[in-house]
């Protein structure tokens, strides 16, 4: 009875419904993109009507929004923040810097592809993406969650060694802590 497939489907449906309609967002403002977020969250575009809400610490957050380029120094902190978040967790890469390096494509100190280091569920392209694009990114993430396809955290768990190898290529002497599942 309890392992009934239909029952599980219903539970999954409810879980996904709540997860997609209540996203606690930790906006990691690394670059210029952070300036788009106040507009997204306040009166003009009001992301709170979609259930997106700011979280103060990684422990409370579901969604890590990385706004802009990541220097190798920042990447360390981002990895630590990502690993402190609790499952289920999602990552949105914001701006072309997280996609292919953007205007920092030949910088000696700025990583180019974010998804080689932590799994990214949705990308928002543009330089800068306007608040409309950010909200469209949220909607895309919601669609993925509803379909059960936003499984970046699972991917990270399964391919942890691959991710660690990539991370260690950049962060040479940084003690990467053991993952706290």
């Amino acid at each position: 009875m309890y392992n009934d497939k239909n029952a599980q489907t219903i539970v999954d449906y409810i879980q996904n419904f709540t997860r997609k309609n209540s996203l606690f967002m930790l906006a990691y403002g690394t670059g210029c993109g952070a300036i788009e977020l106040p507009a997204t969250l306040t009166s003009r575009y009001d992301a709170e009507r979609l259930g997106v809400r700011g979280a103060a610490t990684p422990r409370q957050a579901d969604l890590l929004l990385i706004t802009g380029y990541l220097s190798t120094k920042t990447l360390k902190r981002v990895i630590r923040v990502y690993e402190q978040m609790q499952d289920p967790k999602y990552v949105i890469g914001f701006g072309s810097c997280t996609i292919n390096g953007g205007m920092y494509w030949d910088s000696y100190n700025t990583i180019k592809l974010l998804d080689k280091y932590i799994p990214v569920d949705v990308y928002i392209n543009g330089c800068m993406p306007r608040p409309e694009s950010v909200i469209s990114g949220f909607q895309e993430l919601k669609r993925l969650i509803a379909a059960g396809k936003a499984d970046g955290a699972k991917k990270y768990k399964e391919n942890l060694e691959w991710y660690r190898e990539n991370q260690k290529k950049v962060l040479k002497n940084w003690p990467l802590v053991e993952y706290n599942w």
């Binding site: 190798t72 120094k73 360390k76 996609i99 292919n100 390096g101 494509w105 030949d106 910088s107 000696y108 100190n109 990583i111 180019k112 592809l113 080689k116 990539n166 290529k169 950049v170 962060l171 040479k172 002497n173 940084w174």
Partner: peptide, 27 residues
């Protein structure tokens, strides 16, 4: 810079592009 092992990066004989291609990934 943290963990920097290469040549000082602002020297003009430091080839940034080569370093980037070696270290970071290309989509």
């Amino acid at each position: 810079l943290e963990d920097w092992e290469d040549a000082p990066p602002m020297r003009r004989d430091f080839d940034t592009l080569e370093y980037v291609n070696d270290t970071f990934f290309e989509r």
